[in-house]
Design a protein around this nucleic acid. Structure first.
Lengths: 180, 180
DNA sequence: GCACATGTAAAACGATCGCTTTACATTTCA
DNA sequence: TGAAATGTAAAGCGATCGTTTTACATGTGC
């Protein structure tokens, strides 16, 4: 078996475990079980448990941004934001943003994880600002920020309610956008 | 020393620890250190580590709802929501909603913590709906839900950015409210 | 004055933690 | 052919985990 596949498999398996158990709710044996990996290989690839967490968080962000970029509805740059979220949540389950979960679990003890997540969220907020500019023909940072908050709010709230939060966030975002 | 004070002190000390380290990032000795409590007393009062977490989460919600109720600006029921949030965050630090953090760390393994948080969030969303009805003279669940999402989004986002998210959420909420 | 409730201090329990090591199988390719 | 790279399996490292236990100090009320 080749090297890059193994690395990818470990990350994919760990991602599924972290979704359900959180980052600190399970040991390395449990993290490695879904990919059938020995601990020796883990430390060869990632150096430490924390190194794997870092890689999973990075991959999670990359794959979400990729889906955002490849989503076929270019004519509705803001509405499609929430359509992507809905598809994402139905696929992964609604357990709160994994990036923010990593941030809150590790911010007190692992500054590099915290700063990675801050940078990822800056990237995401910038992407929303770009889409607002596309929709309005000019930048509007105030509206972009509000739409970001609706997005993060829907992601968080979906983990604790059955209400249709994503569609509600989408409608509110479009209202704010047409209301300036 | 009397019984209720000790219980309260343990909870208050644990709350400060959980804010900084997360729920699973520290052992019981560390949790008890700020209140100078022996482990024996912990298990007498709460039965288990998880029992303490449950009590801290319950107290956290109670004390936030109390501040909301006692806030002096009855004339602006929606705007004051975000003023309370700003005062709360400046006092406790912005590390994401502790209730949601508990939910995501324990949902996979401790259903009773998860269901407590779901109920607390239902209570909070209902309080917002009541305030929307007060402001509008009639109920509007769609607007109430959006405002809840702005609130949760601001709470989450404040932990990873320096942008003035709470004030932005407040303005967006008031816009949605006056826009129906 | 004495039982009782409440507390601390500290040792000890087995279990599990992150990580390292030893031993061995497999593929790759010069 | 045979050394290097990559992998699993499993034992073992010391540290720390949540929890229980033993021993002892306090203050309160009958």
């Amino acid at each position: 078996m080749c090297c890059m596949d193994k690395r990818t498999n470990i990350i994919a398996g760990a991602e599924r475990i972290f979704e359900n158990q959180g980052f600190r709710g399970i040991g390395v044996d449990g993290i490695l079980a879904p990919s059938g990996t020995s601990t020796r290989t883990l430390y060869k690839h990632f150096g430490s448990r924390e190194g794997l967490v870092l890689a999973v968080v990075a991959e999670r962000h990359r794959s979400f941004m990729e889906r955002l970029r490849d989503w076929p509805e270019a004519h509705d740059p803001i509405g499609s934001l929430f359509d992507v979220l809905e598809s994402w949540l139905s696929e992964h389950g609604a357990r709160g943003c994994m990036l923010l979960r990593a941030h809150s679990e590790y911010a007190g003890s692992h500054p590099d994880i915290a700063s990675l997540v801050r940078q990822q969220k800056r990237e995401f907020a910038d992407e929303i600002a770009r889409r607002v500019e596309t929709a309005l023909g000019q930048p509007n940072n105030e509206i972009a920020l509000s739409i970001w908050l609706l997005f993060e709010g829907a992601t968080a709230a979906a983990s604790v309610t059955d209400k249709p939060v994503v569609q509600s966030a989408k409608r509110a975002a479009l209202t704010l956008l047409s209301d300036r």
